[in-house]
Amino acid sequence: MQPPAEHVHWLFATGFLILGLCLLGEAIVGPDVWRTRAWRAYLWPGIAFTLGVLMFPVMTFFTNSTIHMLAHGAWAQALMFAGAAELGLVRGKLTSPWWRLAMAFAFLVSGTAFLVHEQNAWFFQRSSFLHHLMGWTLVIGAAVPLARCVRPRSTAFGGAFAATFLLIAVMLYCDRDLAPIFGHLSPLAGVQHR
């Protein structure tokens, strides 16, 4: 009954892609134009929060290892927390700009979870490489939401913030084996198992 792991990765990759595109749109046209329609302000934080809620079924139904379950639990809660803080800021329920640090915190936690979760070396296989890359992207990328706390209207930081999510989306799309759709590209990939 479980969907293949590839499909789950692609679902979340799509979520991050949409989230990144929303942020990119906001960075390009500026927050004032972006928020001419009030609902748009809720769009990307709402997606982040929803992705966090959706991560919980992944955590509970894919239990082939403890470390896998713990990492997904950390991502789920980090996403929900960061999305909730941003929604609170948009709605005016939270007023301190320091709440934006929630996203930096979520990046740090998520990046650390990637790095701890991936116990293999960088070049062991493609997914190992991408897990390391995603982990370090998020850990180093935590500086971007940190900078946005200080300069919330900066186009450069807004663009970098969007780019982080777009990068994560691309890496998630590439993270799993392509065999279910395209077949193996190389005999080195082993026997097709789906």
Binding site: R176, S186, A189
Partner: peptide, 16 residues
């Protein structure tokens, strides 16, 4: 980086 992205993974992490 491009090669790593282009070649399919030998497996999806540890054995299941």
């Amino acid at each position: 980086a491009l090669l790593a992205l282009a070649f399919p993974a030998a497996a999806s992490a540890h054995a299941t």
